[in-house]
């Protein structure tokens, strides 16, 4: 019984961190209606940045946040501005911007292979002051970095929710995701909103990266397994919904952890996809998604 509770809590902890990685993806999709296949690679860039920060300064990894998060924000902002925007403009009247999807896929390959060339294929682990520290509670053990990570996710989620609901830029982003033409007619500059949205999405990856580095290893294709989970989470939680992404992440974490107590870990992946398909059949727009006509 205790095993199940331990698994449940671990699932919630790891799941929130999965959710954090998915928040950026859902934000970008919600605003730009574009599936960003380079999302995992952006996470990978953030993780390498956090890794090198820790290795070079030896400081507490959470001090990397004020460095890595803004760095990734600008990385995403300019990536949108210089690489994606021109393609986007060319496809302005097209309902489904397919070429943009192809471009993000291209960015994914380029970034991953660049990282492979520059950093090599090995797995690197950063030993930080919180690495390996455990939090004990009634014979159940929880990894401290995961607990901190889950906490940071909640704070980010709340901040983003507040930002979107109450700030001027946040409302402009919401308006653009609801009706981009009408938003233009309000005087909202589309290009700027997209840049900011992409920047924000990338910044979320940066935050997730700092949270992961204390207990996870980094290598050039580390983005791939997280990316796949992020897609499932985003669809599960509803495209464009931030609470949906976090909740979806927690659900995925719980399924992985609790499911593994009853069946071999190999099967939990299958179980995950099963649940995902089931939700899609019953509520295609996801748990918190809106019925949109894109």
């Amino acid at each position: 019984m205790l095993g199940i509770i331990e698994a449940l809590i671990n699932g919630i902890l790891m799941g929130s961190i999965y959710g954090l990685t998915a928040v950026g993806l859902t934000l970008i999709f919600g605003v730009m209606k574009v599936i960003n296949f380079a999302h995992g690679s952006i996470l990978m860039v953030g993780m390498f940045a956090a890794y090198w920060f820790v290795i070079l300064t030896g400081w507490n990894p959470y001090f990397a946040i004020p460095v890595v998060v803004p760095l990734l924000f600008w990385f995403g902002y300019y990536m949108q501005s210089f690489i994606i925007k021109p393609i986007f403009e060319a496809e302005k009247d097209v309902r489904e911007p397919i070429t943009v999807i192809i471009v993000t896929t291209g960015i994914w390959y380029v970034l991953d292979n660049l990282a492979l060339m520059i950093f090599g294929a090995e797995f690197r682990v950063a030993k930080t002051s919180v690495t390996g520290q455990v939090f004990e509670f009634y014979e159940m053990y929880f990894l401290l970095p995961k607990v901190i990570g889950a906490g940071i996710t909640m704070v980010c989620g709340i901040y983003l929710y507040w930002f979107l609901k109450h700030s001027r830029m946040g409302k402009a982003i919401r308006a653009t995701s609801l009706d981009r033409e009408a938003a233009s007619l309000m005087g909202i500059k589309q290009a700027k909103i997209y840049n900011v949205a992409f920047g924000l999405g990338s910044a979320c990856c940066g935050m997730a990266a700092c949270v992961l580095i204390p207990f996870y290893y980094v290598y050039p294709t580390v983005g791939v397994p997280f990316d796949i989970k992020a897609f499932i989470i985003v669809v599960l939680g509803g495209l464009g919904s931030i609470p949906g992404a976090i909740l979806g992440g927690i659900i995925v974490g719980i399924i992985e952890n609790v499911g593994a107590q009853f069946m071999a870990a190999t099967w939990t992946e299958l179980l995950l996809y099963g649940v995902f398909l089931f939700v899609l059949l019953v509520k295609p727009s996801g748990l918190f998604g809106q019925k949109h006509d894109y």
Partner: peptide, 18 residues
């Protein structure tokens, strides 16, 4: 072309964005 998931007040606010 209202922002359907935003309130009446928020829609008017958006009108005054510029």
């Amino acid at each position: 072309r209202l922002f359907s998931q935003m309130t009446v007040y928020e829609n008017l606010e958006m009108g005054a964005y510029s």
